[in-house]
Design a protein around this nucleic acid. Structure first.
Lengths: 355, 355
DNA sequence: TCCAGAATCTGGATCGATACAGAAGGGTGA
DNA sequence: TCACCCTTCTGTATCGATCCAGATTCTGGA
């Protein structure tokens, strides 16, 4: 049988408490006794206090749970998500805390179970749809929890870090309208009530289920309204995953039928890069034939000369961690700045004079 | 105070066991009683069994610990590591298991602590140096553990998945010697006994402390020997981190002094890509002026037209997970295939006739 | 009507540690 | 010499669940 504290205590002839102290509070016993105990422990094959038992008693674990928007295996394909995670890891590391990546299974029951069973001190939700079982399950755990997306009217008690998605999206869209574009299409992740890949009609952006997508669509809509383009005239395309491949695939819906939009707004860089791929396949030039704007400014965006909105992914992760772990960090809500990065993928509308 | 099983039991007027069964073994009580219990639980704000307590009693957690070679925040910068993690996550997800990323702190004491306290069912070590405190601590935990690097003479009981690094490296080096290169330099991560960035002398590759690096250096050395180039003639450069930036930085030691090597072997693609950057800065052309070979075949390698060794990172992760979680998977040691991908970064030695 | 067997439910033992109050022994200053 | 404090160690209570053997009730067939 596996040795326990008691085993060692018996072997040395001291009490269980003393052995415990040898590990957790060395100042509570004489150095030579401690030495004896550790020696005996090594001899018996005792490897230190059982983590689960210790966590139970101390009411503290040393790990935080991370909830992702997609299956774990997808999370790592998105450079933006990886950056975020990196920032989070940086803070966690400083606090000697582990990160428990929790699979966000599509099976609600199992997902809730996974969250319920997570042995953690707190949660960090990264783009988890509010209706997802995991989200409720995490809230229900009643542990400290930080949400990595900005909510304008979040309860002042909840920890939130993010950007003003709506304003940033508005900036992106205004960039296009200022260039004279009016026939603009929008590609975003998960626009409608169900996951769907392809064109979709959404009467009001406010109805999009995914928080971040919703905010960005509203920003786009408002910018369009400023120049008299009604939302109903805008073609909206939904994607299931946030991937380059799918960006290219759904772009076909826009590029292979007339009239083509003169500009495309993608609510994520990966989708935008996919659109650029689709353009290249068709011999079209971004910025001249069709303007494309992304969102996030992942490293690849600069290489592809994609106009996009920069948001500080690394800082977001870092701060999310601090909001959970830095006890002295009093504030609970942090908004980070964004910036429009104008690159070669956007240019004036060439049809401007004609129509 | 936080409600427990007992709280709910008292409220409903049943025993603690029955409430426990309501959650964990629904078939052990009548549906209507279960309903009543869950209702009461919701009313009282009871959120289900306490994970630490449950883990303690059941002796099972539902998470595996992942040990990385570098600080967590660096791990995510290496696409190869990310791919591996993705594969691992895929398997974990299928088994409804979480991944606990454990910071591999440089402070040995703290690192060992982190491993000791990890509430997990097993460990997966990814390129953890064998001398690192975390490694011993993980072994000491006496839990199932898989090592994600191939060891030719590993104990048959230990779970191992990897590639034949030595043979693959030999193939990479032979490619260069076959092209007529003789003045070849080697860049690798952590060659000497201490972390160091820059040229370093290593009498025998066998002395390199890092297992993977050691294997690859031996492979290089053996291929050189086949054409009469002695290891002592080879310039070896060590890097601290496995990053593109550092690859470029240490390449300076080779490119800015005469005689320049005609070819460079980098033991990782990120380093090789850094070398390519350094070449470009100096107006040199890879494959013509200097040949460069990498290792790993990360996605960026193809884009940069880097000749390299492909190894299946995703599969490695996936299989590592299966070795831990698939009970019916009897084998314990898996070697994966590698392939030399010849691209534009290598070409014949132009000095061949001259010297 | 009676009883075996299934369906429900109970209670104490247990998982492996830490907290905390207090006991024992040793040292110090008045 | 005595009172007091400090260091070192002990023992019991507790963290919050699950396990398992057994008690109780229900069911259906002889």
């Amino acid at each position: 049988m596996k040795p326990t504290l008691q085993t060692v205590a018996d072997a040395v002839g001291v009490s269980r408490s003393t052995v415990s102290n040898a590990y957790s509070r060395p100042d509570q016993l004489s150095p030579q006794l401690r030495e004896t105990i550790l020696e005996a422990a090594a001899r018996l094959g005792y490897t230190g206090p059982h983590p689960a038992a210790r966590s139970l008693r101390k009411g503290q674990v040393g790990a935080i749970g991370v909830l992702f928007s997609a299956e774990l295996s997808y999370a790592f394909t998105d450079p933006y998500a990886v950056q975020f995670l990196r920032g989070l890891a940086e803070t966690a590391e400083r606090h000697n805390t582990g990160l428990l990546l929790i699979p966000l299974l599509s099976d609600g029951e199992a997902a809730a179970q996974a969250v319920q069973n997570a042995v953690v001190d707190g949660f960090c939700a990264y783009c988890v749809p509010a209706w997802h079982a995991s989200y409720d399950a995490a809230l229900a755990r009643n542990l400290p929890m930080v949400i990595a997306e900005w909510h304008a009217n979040a309860d002042p008690g909840t920890r939130v870090v993010g950007i003003d998605d709506m304003a940033a999206a508005r900036t992106a869209a205004r960039h296009l309208t200022a260039l004279g574009h009016r026939r603009i299409a929008v590609i975003a992740h998960w626009i409608g009530p169900v996951q769907h890949s392809g064109p979709i009609t959404l009467a009001r952006p406010e109805d999009a289920p995914h928080h971040v997508t919703r905010e960005r669509l509203i920003g786009y809509r408002d910018a369009f309204a400023e120049v008299g383009v009604d939302w109903s005239e805008v073609t909206t395309i939904s994607s299931i995953h946030n991937s380059r491949e799918e960006g290219a695939a759904v772009a076909a819906h826009l590029l292979d039928r007339a009239p083509r939009p003169t500009a495309i707004l993608a609510a994520a860089d990966l989708l935008a890069l996919g659109v650029l791929d689709a353009l290249e396949t068709r011999g079209l030039q971004a910025g001249r034939d069709i303007s494309v704007v992304g969102f996030d400014d992942i490293p690849e965006a600069a290489a592809a000369r994609l106009t996009t909105i920069r948001q500080p992914a690394l800082d977001k992760g870092r701060i999310a961690g601090e909001l959970l772990l830095d006890a002295e960090r009093a504030e609970r809500q942090v908004v980070l700045p964004t910036e429009l990065m104008v690159r070669a993928s956007t240019g004036p509308n060439n049809e401007a004079g004609r129509s």
